[in-house]
Write a protein that binds this DNA or RNA. Structure first.
Lengths: 253, 253
DNA sequence: TGTTCATGGCTGGTATACAATATGCCAGCA
DNA sequence: TGCTGGCATATTGTATACCAGCCATGAACA
């Protein structure tokens, strides 16, 4: 009897990897060989393009940055089709904007859009903080502390850029610890945009100090499993950044 | 070097409609014509497919529902390319799942995924409620009341399905009133998924009664500009639904 | 010399042809 | 009879050809 009738099919559709059926019947655990090995050109092009865009420091200049389908296809050594599919996805994620018969352009977020993104991030992360107080393990929360072990004292001033990255990772970790995939996925795009803006954001020493203090308070609230307090702290921390951007980030626009 | 048209181009790229450039130079406000007069085949196919999927009542049966690229292309009278692009977007939005060399299948959300979506929705809408208390006009908030004018008394029992739609609209309106486009866009997908599940959700009379009472309290909090209270009410209302699903929605999975 | 307008090049949008692979059927063998 | 292996078929992934609109150049004319 063919055990691979309909039951595994449902699973294979839901499972992301789903190439186990390729190997011989070898009655080992089928989970032994989820050999992914299926990064299509589309995904490769998507990843390559996204990396390129993120690494671009687009806020340095104000000139429009255009992406040429045909040229990119040549550079990648593939045809236009997968490049186009990658572009379409990047467009739906807000990284590029395609103008018919004109070209594809890298998107620069306006100051107001940045504020909106930070506000949305505040919404997601504050909910995530609630969930963390309810479901995360003590070890997971403890890992949050370690992220700041290297940033005590005055080392911060010398490594503001590094801190900026650790800062983003801290918040991203909280969202991941929530275990809510919808939250995680929604936040991922926001954080990617944040990383792009980060370079252009002027970080002052005292803001960093306050940021670290906020983070410590957040960690304490999470450890104490203080759901409401953690939520408020996380939200206000993010909204504080939004206000800061609103006041001082006139270099956007 | 692109100094000549940098300003209008920036606008035309950012605007979603982006057909203003087609008009003569006519120095009118470019924001006057967001009339999306350029629905490409891709967008048409996307809209048609999305409508079809939403109207599908996919939770009635457990059989896998497959979408045939070529058949759809024939039915729409277009080629596979725009259909594929529409499919790709629907996949990134979580409506379908494409299995290489197998086909694309309509996605059924598991119970756990539904709970995660509702939780994310709670995060977005509770933040939106905060913003509404700070920025919305009294008229806008008053409109919320009108939505329930027809649902007083016992009319609800007879029109449970209608109520379900009004219910979703109520929450969607709150998010729209926030004026935060990021929140709005994120929530849009969630609500679309909700509308699909709604049909399968058994709505009991007493839950509806409580729901209406919750809504009224929310409206009152918004009118009173009670930021924190509105947030809590909205969040708990949504999380209450999540709990309800967790307990009673075993027909999912 | 300044303005207008036609035309050609370049772009993304669409259609179609080709390639790769997963699946199911059927013949052949133990 | 039950199982294995290869072939036919179906389906998506990719490449390429064609089309229509936008833009800029430059010639022609006032």
């Amino acid at each position: 009897m063919n055990t691979r009738d309909s039951t595994p099919r449902r699973d294979s559709i839901r499972a992301r990897g789903a190439t186990a059926a390729r190997l011989p019947v070898a009655a080992v655990q089928p989970s032994l060989a989820p050999i992914d090995a299926a990064p299509s050109f589309k995904h490769k092009a998507y990843a390559a393009l996204k990396n390129a865009i993120v690494a671009m420091d687009i806020y340095r200049s104000r000139d429009d940055i255009r992406l040429d389908e045909r040229k990119l296809a040549q550079d990648f050594g593939i045809s236009r089709t997968p490049v186009r599919e990658a572009m379409a996805q990047l467009e739906s994620e807000g990284f590029v904007r395609s103008v018919p018969r004109r070209g594809v352009y890298v998107v620069r977020k306006t100051k107001n859009e940045v504020i909106e993104m930070i506000t949305a991030w505040a919404a997601l992360e504050s909910m995530a903080a609630r969930l963390v107080t309810q479901t995360a393990t003590p070890e997971q929360i403890a890992d949050l502390r370690k992220m700041f072990a290297t940033f005590e004292g005055d080392q911060v001033r010398a490594h503001l850029d590094e801190y900026s990255e650790v800062n983003i990772e801290f918040h991203q970790t909280i969202i991941k610890l929530s275990g809510n995939r919808v939250l995680i996925e929604m936040a991922e795009n926001l954080f990617t945009h944040m990383r792009m803006i980060r370079r252009k954001t002027i970080v002052e020493k005292d803001r960093v100090d306050r940021s670290i203090r906020d983070h410590m308070k957040i960690i304490e609230a999470l450890e104490a499993r203080a759901t409401d307090r953690a939520e408020v702290l996380v939200r206000d921390h993010a909204l504080g950044l939004a206000d800061h951007v609103k006041q001082y980030a006139d270099y956007l626009d």
